[in-house]
Amino acid sequence: MTTHWLVVSALLFGVGAVGVLVRRNAIVVFMCVELMLNAVNLSLVTFSRMHGNLDGVVVAFFVMVVAAAEVVVGLAIIMAIFRSRRSASVDDASLLKY
């Protein structure tokens, strides 16, 4: 039963990863990263249940925090670039590709 959760988590993680690699809009990429983090949380909690200790849950807690901090930092950066060039698409930011 619990392995099903692992599969779901892996799938979610994969969806997120593919999203990061395929999508171009910074905010969407960013959300895909969050999806990945949450997929990991799911596995962590599942493993925690499998092993019968709370380590995984604790890690999941901290992952949430980290995800939140990442959101804050990410929003700040994306917002700054958004204000500077009025676009949140990674494609539009191409000054560094030469």
Partner: peptide, 13 residues
């Protein structure tokens, strides 16, 4: 939104 996140995290703990 950012502030909320910060404090929501606080609440989590």
């Amino acid at each position: 939104a950012m502030l909320f996140i910060v404090f929501d995290v606080e609440i989590i703990f």
